[in-house]
Amino acid sequence: RRRVRAILPYTKVPDTDEISFLKGDMFIVHNELEDGWMWVTNLRTDEQGLIVEDLVEEVG
């Protein structure tokens, strides 16, 4: 499975499927959606939700 790491922190918009995260958080990518969004699991918090790919980098 594809893994990505947050390069910046992010605070979710209330009442959306987004998740908040810290710089350095690792995610497993489940689905890549339109307009650069990804459905992921945050490995630190075990939370699932949407993040935008501009805020993460690939992990080898």
Rank of each mutant, 00 (worst) to 15 (best):
V59N: 06
H30W: 15
G49C: 02
T16N: 04
G36C: 06
S20A: 04
M26I: 13
I7D: 03
T41W: 07
D15Q: 11
F27S: 00
E32A: 12
P9A: 12
F21P: 00
E53N: 13
R1Y: 15
S20I: 01
T11Q: 11
L33T: 10
V40M: 00
E57I: 09
P14V: 09
E32P: 07
G24E: 05
K12M: 06
Y10N: 05
L50I: 14
M26C: 15
F21G: 00
I19M: 06
D46Q: 14
E53Y: 13
R5A: 07
K23F: 09
N31C: 15
T11W: 09
E58K: 07
G24N: 08
V56S: 03
T11D: 12
A6G: 04
T11C: 15
I19C: 03
G49R: 00
R5Q: 10
P9G: 14
M26T: 12
D46G: 15
E34P: 12
T41E: 10
S20L: 02
T11E: 12
I28R: 05
R2W: 06
V56R: 01
A6H: 00
V56K: 01
D25C: 02
G49H: 01
R1T: 15
L50S: 08
D46E: 15
N31Q: 11
E47A: 07
I7Q: 06
G60Y: 13
R1Q: 15
Q48I: 12
P14S: 09
R1V: 15
G24Y: 07
V4I: 06
T11P: 05
L43K: 04
E47I: 07
E47F: 04
I51M: 05
T11S: 10
D25P: 01
N42R: 03
V52I: 12
V4N: 01
G49P: 00
E47R: 06
T41F: 06
L8V: 14
V13M: 10
V29C: 02
D17E: 10
D25V: 01
L50A: 11
I28P: 00
P9Q: 10
V56M: 10
D46M: 14
W37F: 10
N42S: 09
P14T: 09
G49I: 01
M26P: 04
Q48F: 08
D25F: 02
G24H: 07
R1F: 14
G60S: 11
L33Y: 13
E47W: 03
I7M: 09
E34D: 14
V13R: 13
F21S: 01
V56Y: 02
E32I: 14
L50C: 14
E34N: 15
P9D: 14
E58Y: 06
R1P: 15
M26A: 06
P9M: 08
Y10C: 05
P9V: 05
R1S: 15
R44Y: 05
N42G: 02
F27G: 00
F21C: 07
M38C: 05
V40W: 00
P9Y: 06
I28H: 07
A6R: 00
D46N: 15
W37Y: 12
D25M: 01
E32K: 13
P14N: 09
D15K: 08
E57A: 08
V29Q: 02
P9H: 10
G24T: 03
N42L: 12
L43S: 06
L8K: 10
E32F: 08
Y10P: 04
R2Q: 08
W39E: 05
N31A: 09
V59D: 08
E18N: 04
V4A: 05
V40T: 04
E32V: 14
D54I: 12
D54A: 15
G36E: 03
V29W: 02
L50D: 01
W37E: 05
D46T: 14
R44A: 07
R2Y: 06
V29D: 00
D25N: 00
K12P: 10
D25H: 01
V29L: 04
D35S: 11
W37L: 10
F27M: 09
P9W: 06
L55G: 05
N42F: 02
E18R: 04
L33F: 13
R1L: 15
Y10T: 03
E53I: 13
I7S: 06
E53Q: 15
K12D: 03
L55Y: 13
D17Y: 12
G49M: 01
E58H: 08
A6D: 00
L43G: 03
V52L: 15
D54M: 13
I7P: 02
R3N: 09
E47V: 07
R3L: 14
E18V: 05
E18T: 07
E57W: 05
I19D: 00
V13C: 15
I7C: 09
M26E: 09
E47T: 06
H30I: 11
R5E: 04
I51V: 10
G36A: 05
I51N: 00
D25T: 02
E57V: 12
E18W: 04
I51L: 08
V29I: 08
D25R: 00
R3F: 10
L33E: 09
H30D: 07
R44Q: 05
P9S: 11
V29S: 02
D15G: 11
L55M: 13
W39Y: 09
W37I: 06
V52P: 12
E18A: 04
R3A: 09
S20C: 04
K12V: 03
K23V: 11
R3H: 13
N31V: 13
L43I: 14
T45F: 01
I28D: 15
L43D: 05
S20V: 02
L8G: 13
L55H: 09
V52K: 15
V59G: 06
I51G: 01
E53W: 15
L33I: 08
G49T: 01
L43F: 05
V29G: 00
H30M: 13
L43H: 04
V59K: 04
V40K: 00
L55E: 03
L50T: 09
R44F: 05
Y10M: 05
K12A: 12
L50R: 15
L22M: 11
E53K: 15
H30G: 05
R3Q: 10
R44P: 00
R5V: 11
D15L: 09
N31E: 15
D35N: 15
G24K: 03
N42V: 02
W37T: 09
D54P: 06
I28Q: 07
P9T: 12
L22P: 02
D46V: 11
D54G: 12
V13Y: 11
E57S: 07
W37P: 03
M26H: 12
T45R: 02
L8P: 02
F27R: 00
V40I: 02
M38S: 04
Q48R: 10
R2A: 07
R2H: 07
E58V: 08
A6I: 02
K23R: 11
L50K: 14
L8T: 09
N31D: 13
I7R: 11
V40Y: 00
F21Q: 01
D35K: 13
V40Q: 00
M26L: 13
T45D: 04
T11G: 05
L55P: 01
D46K: 14
W39H: 06
W37N: 07
E18H: 05
V56C: 09
S20Q: 03
V29H: 02
D35H: 13
G36L: 03
E47Y: 04
V13W: 09
G24F: 06
V29A: 02
H30E: 15
G49N: 00
F27E: 01
P14G: 08
V13F: 11
L43E: 12
L8S: 11
V4D: 00
I28T: 09
V40D: 01
D35A: 11
G49L: 01
E53S: 15
V59Q: 07
F21D: 00
T16L: 03
D15I: 04
E58D: 13
L33R: 14
T16Q: 03
T16A: 03
M26V: 12
T11V: 13
P9I: 05
N31P: 01
I28F: 08
E47N: 05
L8W: 11
P9K: 07
T41M: 06
D15S: 09
E53G: 12
E32Q: 13
I51Y: 01
Q48P: 05
V40S: 03
G60C: 15
M26Y: 13
E34H: 15
R44D: 04
Y10W: 06
Q48N: 10
T16C: 05
Q48L: 07
R44L: 04
E57K: 06
K23S: 10
L22E: 13
K12Q: 08
V59E: 08
G24W: 06
T16G: 05
R44N: 07
N31L: 15
D35W: 10
S20N: 07
K23M: 11
R1N: 15
E32M: 14
D35L: 11
N31R: 08
T45Y: 01
M38E: 01
E32Y: 09
